[in-house]
């Protein structure tokens, strides 16, 4: 299992691995927001938590089509299914690798981009904590979407259509926690809900992902 994690991380960091693409996308989306809504500092600071959450969610989504599609094309998935490693574990590991290469950098970059959006000072902690808690759920749910569309040619757009509705609860609780925190309120309740979703999906989604992947490969 460690071998799979190391392999996925190594591939992500090598040329063509796509590491940093999600981060760059996050940066660009955040920079584009003031261009579209105007430079007023108070407006930006009130939408900053939501923009950061939405940007992070889209950056996660965009990197999902690499998660399984590349392994499908070169036959690795067929071989992984026949390997002694349980497919559920393999997909959990792949989701973890996706989070480490996409979600975690977003969490770290969020405060920097928060400065660009006039995020209120007491919001930084909330944004970082809510993203750190919520992005693993995005990776795990995304793995399900990737597994669902693995055999479909040009499945990327379809995958977005399937995954985005599944992201709704995570987004609502995550952004709500960040928003309340930034407004100087207590965001503990949505944060706990978010944690519940994250741990629930980590525990259960790999089974659904493995089931649909087996169906899709036959």
């Amino acid at each position: 299992m460690i071998a799979l994690l190391i392999r996925d991380l190594r591939l992500a960091f090598r040329a063509g691995g796509g590491f940093g693409l999600g981060l760059a996308f996050f940066l660009i989306v955040t920079v584009l927001v003031p261009f579209s809504v105007g430079p007023q500092a108070d407006l930006l600071s009130s939408i900053a938590p939501g923009v950061l959450w939405l940007g992070a969610l889209l950056a996660c989504l965009l990197s999902l089509d690499r998660l399984l599609a590349l392994d499908y094309e070169d036959g690795t998935l067929d071989l992984l299914v026949t390997a002694p490693l349980p497919l559920e574990a393999a997909l959990s590991i792949k989701a973890l690798a996706h989070w480490l290469t996409t979600g975690l950098p977003l969490v770290i970059a969020a405060p920097v981009l928060g400065v660009l959006l006039n995020l209120p000072a007491n919001g930084f902690g909330w944004v970082v904590v809510s993203l750190a808690l919520g992005t693993p759920a995005l990776s795990v749910i995304g793995t399900f979407g990737a597994a669902l569309t693995v055999g479909i040619k040009r499945g990327g757009l379809l995958m977005s259509l399937l995954v985005l509705p599944l992201y709704v609860p995570t987004l609502i609780f995550g952004a709500e926690a960040a928003r309340r925190g930034a407004a100087g309120l207590d965001g503990t309740t949505p944060l706990l809900m978010l944690a519940g979703i994250t741990f629930g999906t980590i525990a259960l989604m790999p089974f659904a992902s493995a089931a649909v992947l087996r169906m899709g490969l036959r």
Binding site: G16, G75, T76, D78, L79, T82
Partner: peptide, 14 residues
């Protein structure tokens, strides 16, 4: 069983 199909399951960047 060890299976080898049409695709080799190799990673170009490894």
């Amino acid at each position: 069983i060890a299976f080898a199909g049409h695709a080799d399951g190799l990673k170009a960047m490894l």
